[in-house]
């Protein structure tokens, strides 16, 4: 008889789960810890000095411009996340329910635009929505006024962000619906629930966790958006993210940039925490393990 000594289940779990977890710990969590440290340092001529101080935070919290940028990014992100939610739900539902064997293809078709870089796509959006863009050109050809609100404005930035991150929302809800038992809806209907009632009582709560993940997946990059506002936002479009990016580009003020990063991280984490509080694992249908 051959056969090696069996490994304990727990050992097996750790052997398989730990490499990836360690990878993420070393290359994500440690870097974030390090910028928290650097945010209390000082930069001089593209070099960091361990000269502990609170100046970066003092400037950030007292100079109104930064707080305005932060507030602007935050509100844009909230609006974008909810827009994606409203439009994303029926779309994801349609794919999961009626997509049949083409479901995977339908979802991949949402991801495929990412094969084209963000800059090309956003500048193409600019080309479509801008003052001499295709959209307004058509309007003017028919003797109508061009729609000004979609040129170089926060609305334009918002449309751009919805454009970029809507696929995340749809995919998150779709993945959740994939494991949802649609027969439960029939049970609800037989017990007298009208379609809307069945949705609110059954579908929505059981898929709230996937929806919450979708909201976060849209909110987080929208809040940190830097490229889109530069292209579509016009002269007043500067966002917290684009100013943050500048600290690591032209100006090279890394310590200050780190502090901005920490604030961005803190705000996003707070929002994630608030969303997470609303997820009741017992009632989300997530039991951790099937059967």
């Amino acid at each position: 008889m051959t056969g090696k000594r069996r490994l304990k289940e727990h050992t097996r779990f750790l052997l398989m789960a730990l490499p990836g977890a360690l990878f993420i710990f070393v290359f994500l969590l440690l870097p974030i810890l390090s910028i928290i440290v650097f945010s209390f340092w000082r930069t001089e001529v593209y070099e960091l000095y361990a000269d502990w101080n609170l100046d970066n935070y003092r400037v950030l919290l007292t100079e109104p411009t930064y707080m305005i940028f932060l507030w602007r990014s935050f509100t844009t992100a909230v609006v974008v996340a909810f827009t994606c939610l409203v439009f994303g739900w029926p779309i994801a539902y349609f794919i999961a329910r009626y997509g049949g064997r083409y479901r995977l293809l339908m979802i991949l078709a949402l991801a495929a635009p990412f094969f084209t870089g963000i800059i090309l796509r956003v500048s193409a959006l600019q080309g479509i929505m801008g003052p001499v863009g295709a959209f307004n050109m058509v309007l003017m050809t028919f003797g109508m006024q061009p729609i000004e609100i979609i040129m170089f404005s926060r609305v334009a930035t918002g449309i751009g962000l919805v454009y970029l991150y809507m696929p995340f929302m749809v995919t998150a809800i779709y993945l959740s619906l994939l494991n949802f038992d649609f027969e439960l809806l029939e049970v609800a209907k037989i017990n007298g629930a009208r379609p809307w009632r069945a949705f609110i009582e059954i579908t929505w709560p059981l898929n709230w966790m996937g929806t919450a993940i979708g909201l976060i997946l849209v909110f987080v990059p929208s809040m940190a958006a830097s490229v889109t506002p530069i292209f579509l936002g016009g002269p007043n479009g500067a966002s917290f993210g684009s100013v943050l990016g500048k600290q690591f580009g032209e100006t090279g003020t890394w310590a200050f940039g780190s502090a901005m990063g920490v604030i961005l991280f803190a705000v996003s984490s707070l929002v994630i925490y608030l969303v997470w509080l609303s997820v009741d694992l017992q009632r989300s249908g997530f039991t951790g393990k099937e059967a």
Binding site: M1, T2, G3, K4, R5, R6
Partner: peptide, 11 residues
Amino acid sequence: GTDVTELPPYS
């Protein structure tokens, strides 16, 4: 008669 306690299922 063989102790298989430590043997994996496939053996």
